[in-house]
Write a protein that binds this DNA or RNA. Structure first.
Length: 231
DNA sequence: ACATTAACGGAGA
DNA sequence: TCTCCGTTAATGT
């Protein structure tokens, strides 16, 4: 960790969580005074599954993955977090433990805010609370949908969905340099890395994508969508 | 339709 | 050096 290039205030943070727009100046000040920003290198653990959840976390810079350390040492990647996103461990309101591990995929800056402060704002500001509810609900919907995909789609469909997701939501481009390894792509789509390699090659041979090491290019997006939807 | 295993070369620590 | 990654092919369920 290093202490370079930290944000000096919430007001001038371009990547602040949109929920903070609901706060009064005094409440923003409260957040700012209780904010602990830290920098992480790729691969470093930001939140550890099972450890006490005493903070709300905001990603100010970089990309991070959340994953559940499952059975037999197998990981399941839950989500990719981007700047501006709230990372509030679902366990925070339930058992005060992190339900999943969050680690940095790129250099990351993250702001920690004491959960008691966060909870205080939820109680005192209804708009803030409602925004949080919407944020949480949206993540829940996505999670449920992913459960269906992982359990009902075949490998091609799962990979297609993951690639479309990365293209549309994370990189916002049809050509991107993926920060995930083939192993991690497998942890996202519930398959072994060998299968990931094989499916990517099949799709490449079919002219749907190009995947040269970490640079992925979507050539036939319509076809990829079809594969994703058909399962 | 998948996982597993083995084998190999390369990158990086 | 050792470990992780990407890749291919053969084999197992």
């Amino acid at each position: 960790m290093s202490g370079k290039n930290l944000i000096n205030s919430c007001e001038n943070c371009e990547n602040c969580w949109k929920g903070f727009k609901c706060l009064t100046n005094a409440e923003i000040e409260l957040i700012n005074e209780n904010r602990y920003e830290a920098a992480f290198k790729p691969g470093e653990i930001i939140l550890k599954q099972g450890a006490p959840a005493s903070n709300a976390l905001f990603l100010a810079k970089g990309l991070a993955k959340s994953y559940i350390e499952g059975i037999g040492g197998k990981n399941l990647i839950i989500a990719i977090f981007q700047p501006g996103m709230l990372i509030l461990s679902p366990g925070a309101y339930v058992n005060s433990r992190h339900a999943y591990t969050v680690s940095a995929l790129t250099p990351v800056n993250a702001c920690f805010i004491n959960f008691d402060i966060f909870r205080q704002l939820v109680r005192s500001n209804a708009d803030f609370a409602e925004f949080l509810l919407e944020d949480f609900s949206r993540k829940s919907l996505i999670s449920n949908q992913r459960m269906v995909s992982l359990s009902q789609k075949k490998m091609q469909g799962r990979i297609a969905e993951a690639l479309l997701n990365l293209s549309d939501e994370v990189y916002r481009s049809d050509e991107f340099e993926i920060v995930l390894s083939r192993q991690e792509l497998g942890e996202m789509t519930n398959m072994v890395k060998e299968s990931v390699v094989r499916i990517l090659k099949e799709m490449e041979d079919a002219g749907i994508i190009s995947a040269v090491s970490s640079v992925i290019k979507i050539i036939d997006k319509a076809k990829l969508k079809e594969i994703s939807e058909k399962g």
